[in-house]
Amino acid sequence: MPTVSMTVNGENVSSEVEPRTLLVQYLRENLGLTGTHVGCDTSQCGACVVHVNGKSAKSCTMLAVQAEGSEVSTIEGLADGDTLHPMQEAFRENHGLQCGFCTPGMVMSAIDLVQTNSNPSEQDVREWLEGNLCRCTGYHNIVKSILAGAKTMQG
């Protein structure tokens, strides 16, 4: 089996994996980072969104071996101790979730949006969320959270 090495949330990790192991399986099953969820498993829902070299990617549509040498960050890597990342805090403050299943992917996708477009409009946010599905909220408070989070992230 090939060995794959990458950094996950700033830590170097290295493991033997079958080439067909998905990145999301590797994160959840090998590293125990279960904050990244598998929703649809067909690249549609975005519950599995992580960052690979700073860009959002669906970890159910990527092989672990494709992340060789990459910097991967997951929802677990955002908070600084007990202090939530501004985007996480914005989701909490604005009640941007109900069941919470889609939330890790929403937060990771939202942070990539703000890194790409530091002052997004409501329309920008709604269009960006094309690849993230929520079946509880109707998106209203998610959009509100992301706009609030974007403001805080700009500082």
Binding site: S43, G46, V49, K55, S56, A57, K58, T61, M62, S109, D112, L113, W128, E130, G131, N132
Partner: peptide
């Protein structure tokens, strides 16, 4: 094309 994550890869 697709969504932001598809466009990133």
């Amino acid at each position: 094309i697709g969504d932001p994550q598809v466009r990133n890869r």
